[in-house]
Simulated assay, not measured.
Amino acid sequence: MTTEKNIRTDWSLDEIKEIYNQPLMDLVYQAATIHRTWHKASEVQVCTLLSVKTGGCPEDCSYCGQAARYHTDIKVKALMSRDEVVSIASRAKAAGSSRFCMAAAWREVRDNKDFDRIIEMVQGVNELGLEVCCTLGMLTENQAKRLQEAGLYAYNHNLDSSENYYDEIITTRTYGDRLNTINHVRKAGITVCSGGIIGLGESHQDRIGMLFTLSTMPKHPESVPVNALARVKGTPLGDLPKTDTWEMVRMIATARILMPASIVRLSAGRAEMTEEEQAWCFMAGANSIFTSESETLLVTPNPGLQQDKKMFETLGLRPMNREKTPAAL
Rank of each mutant, 00 (worst) to 15 (best):
Lys5Phe: 12
Ile7Glu: 07
Trp11Phe: 05
Ile19Leu: 11
Ile19Asn: 08
Val28Asn: 03
His35Ala: 13
Lys40Trp: 03
Ala41Asn: 09
Glu43Ile: 01
Glu43Lys: 13
Thr54Phe: 01
Cys57Pro: 09
Tyr63Asp: 00
Thr72Arg: 00
Ile74Asp: 12
Leu79Ala: 05
Ser81Lys: 14
Ala89Met: 08
Ser90Trp: 09
Glu108Gln: 15
Val109Ser: 00
Arg110Gly: 02
Asp116Cys: 02
Glu120Ile: 06
Leu128His: 07
Glu131Phe: 11
Gln143Tyr: 00
Ala144Gly: 06
Gly151Ile: 05
Leu152Asp: 06
Tyr153Ile: 07
Asn158Glu: 12
Tyr165Asp: 00
Tyr166Met: 06
Arg178Val: 06
Ile182His: 06
Ala188Asp: 02
Gly189Ile: 09
Ile190Val: 06
Thr191Leu: 07
Gly196Val: 04
Ile198Ser: 08
Ile198Cys: 07
Gly201Arg: 10
Met210Leu: 11
Leu214Cys: 07
Pro221Ile: 11
Ser223Thr: 14
Pro225Cys: 05
Pro225Trp: 05
Arg231Asn: 08
Val232Ser: 04
Gly234Leu: 08
Leu240Gln: 11
Trp246His: 11
Thr254Trp: 11
Ala255Tyr: 02
Arg256Cys: 10
Pro260Ala: 14
Ala261His: 13
Ser267Cys: 06
Ser267Gly: 01
Met273Gly: 05
Glu277Arg: 01
Ala279His: 02
Met283Asp: 12
Gly285Glu: 14
Ser288Leu: 07
Ser294Glu: 01
Val299Gln: 04
Gly304Ser: 01
Leu305Glu: 12
Leu305Asn: 09
Gln307Trp: 11
Gln307His: 14
Asp308Ile: 07
Leu317Gly: 01
Thr325Phe: 15
